[in-house]
């Protein structure tokens, strides 16, 4: 099972790669890498957001409490709390003390032209970085196409 690695941060910053989505019978799983250069809170934030965007959770679903997740991941409570707080600020979660985090119904957001341009630029930079690191161009194209196919099958949630 550890041959599939995912540091919580999706390459696209939007959706987890297809093989990392939970199987229909399985509960969603978040994976992080303590050796990654990405801060752990960021990995948790990006990983959870990716799952939330991909409809792995429904409004009213409960997430593990900060304490439970910190114990399972073996990281400080504050690290998990920070990720949850940022997701709550984005409108994804409702945080109540001793009751964990509840997934909220989030209104679709409208991004302005600046945000779209920023996204396009980051995507280009990410692809360029991957190619510079030796990832095959065909693999990058394939991954982008896979992502596009996934997005088409999902309802509008951003």
């Amino acid at each position: 099972m550890w041959t599939r690695t995912w540091c919580g941060t999706s390459p696209t910053g939007c959706l987890p790669p297809a093989e990392l989505m939970a199987e229909p019978s399985e509960k969603p799983v978040l994976r992080i890498d303590l050796c990654s250069s990405t801060p752990v809170y960021r990995q948790i934030l990006d990983g959870l957001r990716a799952l939330l965007v991909s409809d792995m959770f429904h409004p009213g679903d409960k997430l593990p409490t900060v304490r439970e997740m910190a114990i399972d991941l073996g990281v400080n409570h504050n690290t998990v709390a920070e990720a949850y707080r940022l997701l709550a600020d984005e409108g994804w979660l409702d945080l109540k003390r001793h009751h964990g985090a509840t997934v909220l119904s989030r209104e679709p957001q409208r991004a302005g032209p600046e945000r779209r341009q920023d996204f396009a630029q980051r995507l280009q930079e990410l692809a360029a970085s991957a190619i510079a690191d030796g990832v095959d161009k065909a693999a990058v194209v394939h991954q982008l196409n896979t992502l596009a196919d996934q997005l088409k099958t999902q309802k509008e949630c951003l």
Binding site: W2, K27, F57, L63, P64, L73, V75
Partner: peptide, 12 residues
């Protein structure tokens, strides 16, 4: 040991 960690996202 591996530095990878995983957690199931369901409350206990």
């Amino acid at each position: 040991p591996t530095a990878e960690r995983e957690v199931q996202l369901t409350p206990r």
